[in-house]
């Protein structure tokens, strides 16, 4: 009897499952689970109880996260939540105060140089070199990675085309618009063909056209399998790009998950917004034990069954300013981090 064995590789939740399968009498394949084993891919970023303290302030307070290769991972949070402090440790800029942090499986405190050689970083400020032209910015940056000059020039041209900046090759940095500068910063971060791209608020301060342009390029990079770590306070951006994300506040992770899962788990499917809710509606909401939030002159009701409830509320309690919409990540964000100003 001839036994044909096949190695079966399947993806289950980001992990590769490898097992042996053999044909059965009725022509099906049977996966032999006894020999199957889970091959956990090495995480791109792994942190455990990561802390950062400076000037007596605990900016990052025990963060544990795991980001896989090819994944776009988002860190969301209001200003001062500790997003930037976290990524600055990840790209080897700030020393770790305590806890474990490994990038590419290497300890950041021991192998910062190796890790930096394989990462691309787009810091929050546009720190392009204003003393140099657009093209020189890329080629000079390539020299920091010991990329030979001929390769660097070729790569710079490719990246300028990819970022739609080829017509600005000889321009000075200060002649570029905000959106162009941002695209050039991303191009610069890609000069060393990184395996991990770290973006700290990549689209803050950009107009919608520029923002969508950046998103389109990032989506392309993601499709090529590049791991992207992103901090942002634009919920739309996170929902658009991230496979998984965490919401941080006061240096801690509040929730972790896929954008849709987080919405469903924390606020449901729909939100009913009521302008200047009546007393009777407030009473109804409280008596029915509905998940809601009372703001000044506005009531938000989070629900999984929007249509039915909306029908009931708009007929019974609402005469004006009552609307039903899909729940968004922004609802999750505001619900978890509160609505008070952070500056």
């Amino acid at each position: 009897m001839v036994v044909v064995c096949h190695t079966v590789v399947r993806r289950i939740g980001g992990c590769r499952t490898v097992g042996l399968s053999r044909p059965t009498a009725d022509g099906n394949w049977l996966v032999d689970l006894n020999v199957a084993y889970l091959e956990m891919p090495e995480p791109l970023i792994f942190s455990k109880d990561l802390c950062k303290t400076f000037n007596g302030l605990k900016a990052v307070d025990g963060i544990s996260l795991r980001m896989s290769r090819g994944e776009c991972f988002g860190i969301l949070g209001p200003n001062g939540a500790g997003k930037t402090s976290t990524v600055r440790m990840i790209y080897g800029f700030s020393p770790v105060s305590s806890g474990t942090l490994k990038v590419f499986g290497m300890d950041i405190q021991k192998h910062a140089r190796l890790i930096k050689a394989k990462s691309g970083v787009c810091q929050q400020e546009n720190n392009l070199d204003p003393d140099l032209t657009v093209f020189q910015n890329l080629v000079t940056f390539a020299s920091y990675f010991d990329i030979p000059r001929a390769n660097a020039r070729q790569r710079a041209s490719e990246l300028l085309r990819f970022m739609r900046l080829e017509h600005k090759e000889h321009a000075k940095i200060l002649e570029l618009s905000g959106g162009m500068q941002r695209r050039l910063v991303i191009a610069r971060a890609l000069i060393n063909k990184p395996e991990l791209l770290i973006l700290d608020e990549p689209t803050t301060g950009l107009d919608p056209q520029s923002r969508h342009q950046v998103w389109a390029r990032l989506a392309e990079l993601k499709a090529q399998g590049l791991g992207i770590l992103l901090t942002t306070h634009y919920m739309e951006e996170a929902a658009h790009l991230c496979d998984r994300l965490v919401i941080m506040d006061h240096g801690r992770i509040l929730v972790e998950g896929g954008p849709l899962d987080l919405i469903h788990q924390n606020v449901g499917v729909n939100v009913i917004e009521v302008e200047s809710p009546s007393e009777s509606l407030l009473k109804f909401v409280k008596e029915s034990d509905l998940d809601h939030e009372e703001l000044s002159h506005r009531l938000l009701i989070y629900t999984r069954d929007g249509e039915t409830l909306f029908g009931k509320i708009s007929e019974g309690f609402c005469d004006r300013g009552c609307s039903l919409r899909m729940a968004t990540l922004e609802d999750v964000f505001l619900k978890l981090t509160g609505r008070e100003l952070r500056d």
């Binding site: 080897g92 800029f93 990462s119 720190n127 070199d129 204003p130 940056f141 920091y144």
Partner: peptide, 14 residues
């Protein structure tokens, strides 16, 4: 002003 050092510190240079 130019944050040139910050940018370079994200590369293999220390």
């Amino acid at each position: 002003y130019q944050k040139t050092y910050d940018a370079i510190m994200a590369t293999p240079l220390n």
